[in-house]
Amino acid sequence: MESLFVSLDGPKGAGKTTLLEAITKVLRADNKKVIRLCEKKSDPFRGETMALVNQLARNPTLELEWEVCRRLADSRAWISQHVLPKQPSNSIILMDRWYPSDAAFRRTVPFAEILQLNIERNVRTPDLHVGVVTAPEISWARAAARSRGLGSTVIHKLEEHIACTKAFEREIAHHGWVLCRNEGTVEDATMQVISEIYSVL
């Protein structure tokens, strides 16, 4: 069996990392081989891209946002070519963020065009896209309560976070990704995603 590639994407504070940890624990308890990867930690060009993101935050232009989108797609192509093929063939790869997350954070470049950038570069398509969301007020409060805060170079105000969440939910519906509303218990959200994973295994 080839590796199963699952991405968890969504706005800040939606609880992706906590959910990933819980999913990993359940799958490993069932003797599954789980590989946890994070897009930003697998990307050798991250420093240069984040310098552009910071520039974009100070001086938002369409041209600069396009450059950020192209660089992120190039990075995913690199990960698709150099990192994902090295994982064990019968493993479940859980990726913390992949190109669906651009649907939440990009402001001016339409997501259809971002998707096209990724397709043209042969970025690997996840076998399962999971969009993790909460009501924006909940994820905003959760993020604000963390020691690192929101930790976003893109989102600075609740209004922006609300817009980001709505944009992401529209793309989840449009592309038929799995919607995981992570407002209840972590156990409920975990079992929903586990059930989706087993349905595609």
Score class of each variant (00 low, 15 high):
N182I: 02
K166G: 01
E196N: 13
I197D: 05
V200F: 05
W177M: 01
V200C: 12
K166T: 15
V186C: 12
I197K: 02
V200T: 04
V193N: 00
E196R: 11
N182V: 02
F168C: 06
Q192W: 04
I172A: 05
Q192C: 00
A189C: 11
R170P: 01
F168P: 02
A173E: 14
H175D: 03
E169F: 00
E183N: 07
N182M: 07
G176I: 01
S199L: 11
E187H: 12
E171C: 03
A167D: 15
S195E: 15
V193E: 00
G176R: 04
I172F: 01
D188I: 00
V186R: 06
T165Y: 03
T185N: 07
E183I: 02
M191S: 08
I194G: 04
T190A: 04
A173W: 13
A167Q: 15
I194A: 05
R181N: 14
M191W: 08
D188L: 01
T190E: 02
I172M: 06
V186W: 03
I197N: 05
I197H: 07
A189Y: 03
C164A: 14
V186Q: 07
G184M: 13
E196P: 06
A189V: 04
V200I: 09
A189D: 10
T185S: 14
G184Y: 14
G184K: 15
H174Q: 12
E171V: 06
Q192S: 02
M191F: 07
R170H: 11
E187D: 14
V200L: 09
E196T: 07
C180N: 08
E196A: 10
T165P: 03
S195Q: 15
L179F: 07
D188Y: 00
R181L: 12
V186F: 05
D188T: 03
I197P: 02
T165N: 14
N182R: 05
A189Q: 11
E183H: 02
V193K: 00
V193R: 00
V186S: 08
A173G: 12
H174C: 06
E196W: 10
C180R: 02
R170Y: 13
Y198A: 02
A167H: 15
T190V: 01
V200K: 13
H175P: 01
C164P: 07
A167F: 10
M191H: 13
I172T: 09
K166V: 12
M191Y: 08
R170Q: 11
Q192D: 06
I197E: 04
N182P: 01
V193F: 00
D188G: 12
M191K: 10
G176C: 06
Y198V: 09
W177P: 05
S199N: 13
